[in-house]
Amino acid sequence: MTSPVGQQRERQDQDQRRTGAVAVRTTGLRKSFDDTEVIRGVDIDIEPGTILGLIGPSGCGKTTTVRLMTGLLEPTEGSATVFDTDACRLSSSDRARIGYLPQTPALFPELSLDENLSFHASMYGMRLRRRDRLDQLLEWVELADHRKKRVVDASGGMQRRLALAAAFVHDPEVVFLDEPTAGIDPILRDKLWTRFREQAADGRTLVVTTQYVGEAGQCDQVGLLSDGELLLLDTPTNLRRAAFDGEVVDVRLDRPLTDEEVADIGSKPFVVGSIERTSPTGLRIVVDDAGRAMQQLREAIDVCDASVVDMDEHLVDYDEAFLRVVQRHRSASTTSEEVAA
């Protein structure tokens, strides 16, 4: 899917990576509507060739953050830059280097899928090899067999995929995708993420919001938003660790341990969090490094004159991690407000 223009952009992206430049940056980003602050001091740096996934509860500020990054909204405080330029003051040539899929895409209901995509291409002055590009994109989103169908007769999922193709029609360097996989079946979602990864491998930068928390694992970095605050900006692996502030080991024993025995295990230096009883003989233990700590746990349990029946690392899924981090934040916020009152 890489055109000669795209090849030139890839070289530009490689130059950016060598010089340590960032493709998108927000600094102290804040946005208020009337007297309600909806984005609260968001700081993000996104390097070229990176996929940043923005996740969070409904209404947490994902869409507003993307609209601020694209320059469609002016921040109340702070800044958002793309290509080291204020997003609200990008030139027309810089804007042509950006792709954007909004939650509610602009499609013409009486035109066919093919005609809609061709219209978007014409907006960027595409003439040479336009037909080849449109064919590639329609194949990319699996709409080639429906190209003559009018948008009004297409399903919501088809319309979403067409809008996604339109976001890439001009071969942009930076692409903002607001819930691109919403309403799309799991098989096609997986195919689209494979293609997003291919785009990033070619040097493009993607900012993707998603309602499917499990898609965080497809990203290079994950930004977790809640109530307008950026709670976490890290790798998917570290998002999992953040759920318990460490790695987790599940242990099943041949007998229940007393509270004193559990407290003794909890005092070991490799135990970095709470110990939870999961059953009469089951424990969930937060440690610094699961691989190393499992042998140390066996030794500590031997001292208690108990035996390990089963021991495994508990792999936190992204939904569990998301819930725990958000709930912990909201609980801490509530406590702070009560203390302040």
Rank of each mutant, 00 (worst) to 15 (best):
P4V: 06
P4W: 06
G6W: 09
G6D: 08
Q12S: 10
D13T: 12
Q16F: 13
R18Q: 15
T19E: 11
T19N: 07
A23W: 10
T26C: 01
R30F: 09
S32Y: 12
E37N: 03
G49L: 06
G49Y: 10
I51Y: 04
I55M: 04
P57S: 09
G59F: 08
T65M: 08
G71E: 13
E77M: 04
S79W: 07
L90R: 04
R95G: 05
A96D: 11
R97P: 00
L101R: 02
A106H: 04
E115Q: 09
L128N: 11
W140R: 09
V141E: 11
A144Y: 04
A144C: 02
K149R: 13
R150I: 04
R150D: 12
V151Q: 10
S155H: 03
A163G: 05
A166T: 09
H170R: 00
E173W: 00
L188A: 15
R189H: 03
R189E: 03
D190N: 08
L192V: 05
R197L: 04
R204I: 01
L206T: 01
T209D: 02
V222S: 01
L224T: 00
E229M: 01
T237W: 01
N238M: 03
D245T: 10
D250N: 10
V251Y: 12
V251N: 11
P256I: 06
L257T: 10
V262L: 07
V272K: 12
V272W: 09
T281D: 06
G282Y: 07
I285M: 12
V286S: 15
D288V: 10
A293C: 10
V303Y: 12
S307V: 07
Y318W: 06
R324Q: 14
V325C: 07
H329L: 04
S333D: 12
T335Y: 06
S336E: 14
S336K: 07
E338Q: 13
V339F: 10
